[in-house]
């Protein structure tokens, strides 16, 4: 990987010939499009991730703006989840995973040794691909975060947080009569919304969502998309998705990943209507992926 480091940093220009053929196995050396925004919530520069010897993310720089939804798309195994997990240091739990580069949250380097992951993860919450409610009651699932962080002083507080969180997640009406039943007994879509409620119960600033709808039917998906739209007003959201329609529907900006690299990023509209990069075009027109 002897690529020049400064090449992809802030340049918005393509760093190689867009029209070159056989692109699938050509090295991609830079990012097309506007990777910076005016008011970034999170800002990453030159991120590389290794799983042991495997170089899973190469040289990715990307901003996530205040109150915007950034969608990340790309073929399977291209490193979307890996990148997302870097943003709240979930990769710390993976043995042999190494992250380099600069990742800022409100101008603070989150990989600084002085930074504590606990408050970081309170600020940057995460919803996973597969719903993973705890084997506890619905109430306890949502109450888990506020409880461990000591955010509440009374039971009434907690009740209120649980209720508002569930309401925001659009689940309240469905579960308000069975709060003490196990969370694992809900349907897949309900479980996913429960996980979202669980995440927003600690009022994070950024929410990372890794294919939150991949296990859900269209109706549940629609509910969650609606939800994302509402949440955007308070939170900053980064979402990984395999569905381009979904990306088009919920996001303001879209980033296209390919083989561990960020190929193109831009206004969602622009990406889907006028992709600048050949790889992006191929992907969104369904030529591969």
């Amino acid at each position: 990987m002897e690529q020049t480091m400064n090449m992809s940093k802030t340049t918005a220009e393509p760093a190689f010939d867009v029209n070159s053929s056989a692109l699938a196995d050509r090295r991609v050396d830079g990012t097309v499009g506007k990777i910076r925004v005016d008011n970034p919530r999170m800002s990453t520069t030159d991120v590389d991730v290794y799983y042991g010897d495997k170089h899973a993310i190469q040289n990715v720089s990307l901003d996530i703006g205040q109150n915007e939804v950034v969608a990340m798309i790309g073929p399977s195994g291209c490193g979307k989840s890996t990148f997302l997990r870097c943003l709240n240091r979930m990769n710390d739990t993976v043995a042999g995973c190494k992250v380099t580069g600069t990742l800022l949250l409100d101008k603070e380097d989150i990989y600084d040794p002085k930074i504590d992951v606990v408050p970081l993860r309170v600020r940057v919450g995460m919803v996973f691909q597969k719903p993973n409610p705890f084997p506890k009651s619905i109430y306890e699932n949502v109450a888990y975060g506020p409880r461990i962080h000591g955010l509440i002083t009374s039971n009434a507080d907690l009740d209120e947080i649980v209720e508002t969180s569930l309401k925001k997640a659009g689940l309240w009406e469905e579960v308000k009569d069975r709060m003490d039943q196990p969370g694992t007994g809900l349907s897949g879509g309900q479980q996913q919304r429960l996980c979202i409620a669980r995440t927003i119960a600690v009022s994070p600033e950024v929410i990372l969502m890794d294919e939150p709808c991949s296990a859900l039917d269209p109706i549940a998906t629609a509910k969650i998309e609606e939800l994302i739209d509402e949440l955007r007003e308070q939170f900053t959201i980064a979402i990984v998705t395999h569905s381009m329609q979904q990306a088009a529907r919920v996001s303001q900006r879209t980033a296209y990943f390919h083989l561990g690299k960020l190929v193109e990023v831009g206004e969602t509209n622009q990406i889907f209507t006028a992709p600048k990069h050949k790889l992006t075009e191929d992907y969104i027109t369904g030529r591969f992926g």
Binding site: R121, G125, F128, P135, I148, R198
Partner: peptide, 25 residues
């Protein structure tokens, strides 16, 4: 592992995850 991830992602420490999620599970 997803159970652990869910807890860590909420900012739980290891012992909290063990005591409140893993052991009950």
């Amino acid at each position: 592992q997803s159970m652990r991830d869910g807890s860590y992602a909420l900012g739980a420490t290891k012992s909290e995850t063990v005591r409140r999620v893993i052991i009950p599970a």
